[in-house]
């Protein structure tokens, strides 16, 4: 009985010393599972497209180097006082290291056609385990109906 007591006591002590991991905790397998690709625009109406891409009004992490490091927590869009569209994406750095990413936005009209030139790449400096906001404004007002954000690692 005594022989068994010592290891159990040791294990209990070890459990008490276990360090607590700071938030956020990113479950990458679940994040990957939630990723939903949709058919892209077909060349001929009524035919299925061979392209599968991210749905409209979403963030597409195009760089495998940061796919399992960053998590897009939320995306929101609103009209400004002049009618242009402001998109805001909240990006979480799941790692214990500084990450630098860059993002750009393409705005689309109601027919799915790009309504203006794609925005310039905007850098995001993400401190370890913090979240940062990526913001972009459209140039057009009433013509803008949707958007697609692309994100990659800054080289």
């Amino acid at each position: 009985m005594r022989r068994l007591l010592a290891p159990v006591l040791g294990l209990l002590l070890l459990g008490g010393c276990a360090s607590m991991e700071p938030a956020p905790h990113c479950d990458m397998s679940r994040i990957s599972g939630q990723r939903d690709l949709v058919p892209g625009p077909a060349m001929v109406p009524g035919e299925s497209s061979p392209l599968k891409e991210m749905p409209m009004n979403s963030v597409n992490i195009t760089d495998p180097a940061i796919m399992n490091k960053l998590y897009v927590r939320s995306i929101a869009a609103r009209r400004t006082a002049t009618g242009t569209v402001e998109v805001v994406a909240q990006v979480v750095n799941c790692t214990d290291f500084q990450q630098t990413a860059e993002a750009r936005t393409q705005f689309y009209d109601s027919t799915g056609v790009a309504s203006e030139p794609v925005s310039a790449w905007q850098r995001l400096h993400l401190s370890p385990r913090t979240s940062s906001a990526y913001r972009e404004l459209s140039m057009g007002d009433k013509t803008v109906d949707g958007y697609m954000i692309e994100m990659r690692e800054t080289k």
Partner: peptide, 18 residues
């Protein structure tokens, strides 16, 4: 990047663009 950011911001200001 800087000119793109500035022009988009200017277009969202009512006094300039509306």
């Amino acid at each position: 990047a800087m000119t793109d950011q500035m022009l988009r911001d200017m277009l969202s200001q009512p006094r300039l663009a509306n």
